[in-house]
């Protein structure tokens, strides 16, 4: 199983996208994506944890007895998440408050453990790092798209509260399409998150089946997701 970096990147961003294809980590995805600022915060935190835990899994994987490998990975992930949470509550307290319980819950995001156990522990460090980055970015992009959609429909704004994220009050309060009171509340509540994610899944599926049809028609072989 030889993998090149471009395969790893394409898997994380598209073919095996954690949010839209593997459907991993849906709980934080749906709960936190009420605004671009929240989505960005949780996405970057998850990305940092993924890269860290993948790197440690790749380095330590070959040395770990099979019986305790999973336990060690859980420990590594928990330590990484706790570190990220401590750093965030010290340097970005506003964002820390608005992410609330979903920050420590990154530990339970099955995406992180799945990448460490099923991929990073059997790969060289460079591949593991690239995979953490690609999967994290794939998750971050889906979070951002959901967050932007829900904030735009629900609040009529885009990027409000970014000053919390940057910890500066002069960062502005984002761009406003229409006044807050005309917002559609449904988009901000959990059902709205499901509706929007469903629409995104449908678009993703339509797009990939169109690609497959185009591939058959021209007789060219379309790259299947490497697994």
């Amino acid at each position: 199983m030889r993998m090149v970096l471009s395969d790893i990147l394409r898997n994380g961003l598209r073919d095996q996208n954690p949010g839209l294809v593997q459907l991993l980590g849906l709980c934080p995805l749906l709960a936190v994506s009420t605004s671009v600022a929240n989505a960005l915060g949780l996405g970057v935190a998850t990305l940092a944890v993924l890269v860290t835990s993948n790197a440690i899994a790749a380095l330590a994987g070959p040395w770990l007895p099979r019986e305790v490998r999973l336990a060690v990975f859980v420990l590594v992930i928990a330590a990484a998440v706790t570190s990220v949470e401590l750093a965030m509550s010290g340097w970005w307290p506003g964002l820390h408050d608005s992410l609330g319980i979903f920050l420590p819950l990154i530990v339970t995001n099955c995406l992180v453990l799945a990448r460490a156990e099923s991929f990073a522990s059997r790969q060289p460090l460079a591949h593991a790092l690239a995979d953490g980055l690609a999967m994290g970015l794939g998750f971050l992009l889906v979070l951002l798209a959901l967050g932007a959609g829900r904030e735009l429909i629900g609040h009529g704004s885009l990027g409000a509260g970014m000053d919390l994220l940057l910890g500066r009050s002069d960062a502005g309060s984002g761009w406003r399409l229409f006044p807050e009171r005309h917002g559609l509340l449904l988009a901000l509540l959990p059902p709205g998150a499901f509706v929007l994610l469903g629409l995104m899944l449908a678009m993703m599926n339509a797009w990939s089946s169109a690609r497959r049809r185009a591939g058959h028609a021209s007789g060219a072989s379309v790259a299947e997701p490497a697994s």
């Binding site: 770990l64 305790v68 060690v72 420990l75 330590a79 706790t82 570190s83 401590l86």
Partner: peptide, 26 residues
């Protein structure tokens, strides 16, 4: 068991180091 014990000690050391760094800021 020894591997798990060593990993635990390392993880606790890391977290408490970061905790000490962040605590004054928090």
């Amino acid at each position: 068991a020894a591997t798990l014990a060593i990993a635990t000690v390392l993880a606790v050391a890391l977290v408490s180091w970061i905790h000490d760094l962040a605590q004054p800021r928090i």
